[in-house]
Design a protein around this nucleic acid. Sequence first.
DNA 1: CAGCATCCTGTCCGATACTG
DNA 2: CAGTATCGGACAGGATGCTG
Lengths: 115, 115
Amino acid sequence: MNENNLVFNEKTCPVTATMQVIGGKWKAILINAIYQTSPARFGELKRSVTGITQSMLTSQLRELEDDGIINRKVYAEIPPKVEYTLTEFGLTLSPIILSMAEWGRKYKFNQAQKK
Amino acid sequence: MNENNLVFNEKTCPVTATMQVIGGKWKAILINAIYQTSPARFGELKRSVTGITQSMLTSQLRELEDDGIINRKVYAEIPPKVEYTLTEFGLTLSPIILSMAEWGRKYKFNQAQKK
DNA sequence: CAGCATCCTGTCCGATACTG
DNA sequence: CAGTATCGGACAGGATGCTG
């Protein structure tokens, strides 16, 4: 046995678990968008999150809901109205997302300097 | 114009920029692994990051290097020896990764309770 | 308005074999 | 030891059309 026995297992790694929740192309953006505009309506998200398609928006919201990150509140009205908010647990993600936003700005600044 | 003009653009979103650096299946794990065992040798990473293949390890390390996150130090020896460390800039990612690890543990705990 | 059902495409990733 | 090179499959993600 060597002195350094650290193991980083993709199955058990907590970082990977987090990536599976907020990873992918849209999840983090959506969490941020809902955090900023809460309560956020479906159509509102579709307009503010530029480039996302309806089907992607639906599926990503559903996954976030299943993971306990967001609440989905349906109003029995015509026309339909659905509001999304972060759950209490979802709110614990916001510091991470905000840190990521801050870091992303630094990164872009660095990239711009490199040229 | 409505009162709420926030836009979350996939091209300019700083959160997306960060995701492109630490996203994917292995990047965050690798950053964490190098952070914990620095300086980390190639073979050492291959052993500790269970499940990763050589080609993936090589390509992911190369991308992290190109993004300015890690340093690659080659020793002109036989047998070859390469050491990876986080750059100063890469170190600014560690609080984020650590937060993600902490959050991932909470998430797993929640999931376990749900059953 | 807020979805769902299909179909399709690109890329991410893994397996395997070879090298300085 | 620390890599390359090549190949192929799975899956995330996108386009489009339809619905309560």
